[in-house]
Amino acid sequence: MTQHRIRFTLNGAAVDLTVPAERLLVDLLRDDLGKTGTKDGCSVGVCGLCTVQVDGAPMSACLLLATQIDGAAIRTVEGLASPLQEAFISEGGFQCGICTSGQLMAADALLRVKPKATDAEIRDWQMGNLCRCTGYYGIERAIFKARDER
């Protein structure tokens, strides 16, 4: 019922708006701000389609109230410019593409804090991003490639 003024940055740009208490971050991004690169899948925080970066950490936009990101820096796939993207294309890191934004935002978050993440660390980190198409091998190859070519 209550309305809340929230200020945050979205892909580096300042955003200042008012939202009702019950607005979810995923809906704020998709419906109010038109950033539909972030997808809504399982809606219970399992599948990883809605992964965005909140102050650099990957989180489920479907489990965050918009009020919770007041003051934070949010990054979505629309603000991503990473060698990961080309690696996902060349290595077969996607097919249908519905999980791709989330995969990319998770992997990018890891490589930013740990550019030399081990294969095992990458697998543990990406475990929360489901993919029903690739069997994950192409995703692994893509992330390993982006890491190795840094």
Partner: peptide, 23 residues
Amino acid sequence: RPERRLDGDEKTTGAAKYTADLE
């Protein structure tokens, strides 16, 4: 030669529009 998929750019930038994304 390995292909570069036609939908590669739009799917890795979030530009691809799925049915739920349509305004």
